[in-house]
Write a protein that binds this DNA or RNA. Structure first.
Lengths: 241, 241
DNA sequence: CGACGCTTTGACACAACTCAACAACCGTGG
DNA sequence: CCACGGTTGTTGAGTTGTGTCAAAGCGTCG
């Protein structure tokens, strides 16, 4: 069965939340028949844009962010393979933040109307998509907590704990080692820090034998130590519990 | 007609997004027939709770927050009249943060199943609720940007600009003056600051003739000045644009 | 009246930022 | 193949915004 409907990363993710029927999996597969290559640095959508499009990220890394007048930016999230990008902006009129590809990537444009038809025909699929959106929102909330109430060290630790869990959940690496092409500048914009301070924090984590980030890969040496430092609880990422 | 279906704050808010039919307004009104008084300080839901309930906040103030191991807390949002609280947690199994009443308040419990029936019967109502949820999420994102990339002064200014707009949109005050029963401790937990520093920041805002917070009321003396300081753009709060 | 919750202020400490310089790496073109 | 420029990473010294600790002022409510 070479083209089983369940062989997309998105399908695997949603299927872990609610087991989907053959027909539902096929519908999901039919959504994703049109992969498009995008280059590193390319903007997928930008704030205030009117032709709202959504994508399934099939591979590569992206980020969503908002820019400030003074040139600073705050990265909201890092979509990775299997994540849906900009879903809300097709359902509504507002596109409140921008998306860029951080690496060369493959995305799958989604038609708003097509999604609507799918979820009316397959309500369980709608529930699964809603769950995914909800999980994304929970990540934003957790991010807010991090920036508001954790210091730079804890915050960075938390970030990598979450990333490790996300990467291993979709099968792209283990909790001990996974690809991570984020530069210290990008990390800084996500963590609300300076690139220079990110560097110092990474050094501390390395010296404490918790985590090493090197050459686009993350190595977690002490998962429990890192979790303890971060105050990380993974409940919000999983379907169970 | 004493009980016109449009006389709830929620109805007014949603109606501003999509004009709703008589039947839709009635459905919305029927959702809100069971107001319950809650006392200041009372918890409405708490993290990890299993019997997920949603509420329409009819009056009074609340906050949603997450607690950290070390006793700190991060306030995520301040629901006010017309806001729906905990909608996601009835649709899904996860309740990822807690809600408390900050003042004596009146809430209206919502049945998950009843909501589902309403939105299947009245899809436009579903769209309106989705819009409201989306707006809430946009506020969380803006909050994240504030904490990550604005300093204490800008951040506080931004917070009050948003609040002023929200309050005046639902008719509870003007952009120059509105009720605001938030203590400096509560503000601190929302803004990712210390109560002491909030005090210093409020003093600066007062001395710069921008904003005074006194006796549970906020007075904005210079709306444009405050907006400029905050880098506030209200697009994400309105249905238009 | 006293007790409590909230606000205000000052002195000091520290985490994170800024500025400056340099080192390592990488793709590109000669 | 090497030389090059640009991007990314590393480190140090000094500054600043925000946190910490301590104490006092004020309203309000029982």
């Amino acid at each position: 069965m070479p083209n089983a409907p369940s062989d997309s990363v998105l399908a695997r993710k949603l299927n872990a939340f609610i087991p989907l029927s053959r027909a539902e999996l096929r519908c999901l597969a039919d959504m994703q028949v049109n992969p498009v290559r995008v280059k590193r640095g390319q903007q997928l959508t930008h704030e205030g844009q009117t032709d709202h499009r959504a994508f399934v990220l099939q591979g590569g890394w992206a980020c969503s962010y908002k820019l400030l007048r003074d040139g600073g930016r705050q990265i909201i999230s890092f979509p990775i393979a299997g994540d849906i990008v900009g879903l809300r902006s097709v359902l509504l009129r507002t596109a409140d933040h921008s998306f860029s590809a951080l690496t060369d990537a493959v995305v799958n444009p989604l038609e708003g109307t097509y999604i609507m038809r799918c979820v009316t025909e397959f309500p369980r699929l709608g529930a699964a998509l809603l769950w995914a959106a909800s999980r994304d929102e929970a990540m934003v909330v957790e991010h807010l907590v991090s920036i508001g109430r954790r210091n730079a060290l804890e915050r960075t630790a938390h970030f990598f704990m979450e990333l490790a869990e996300r990467m291993s959940l979709i099968g792209l690496g283990t909790e001990a080692e996974f690809k991570c092409p984020l530069t210290q500048f990008v990390l800084a914009d996500a963590l609300g820090l300076t690139a220079i301070h990110v560097n110092r924090v990474l050094r501390q984590l390395r010296e404490q034998k918790l985590l090493t980030l090197r050459k686009g890969k993350a190595y977690i040496h002490d998962l429990d130590g890192l979790r303890k430092l971060a105050g990380f609880e993974s409940g919000y990422l999983n379907s169970l519990s």
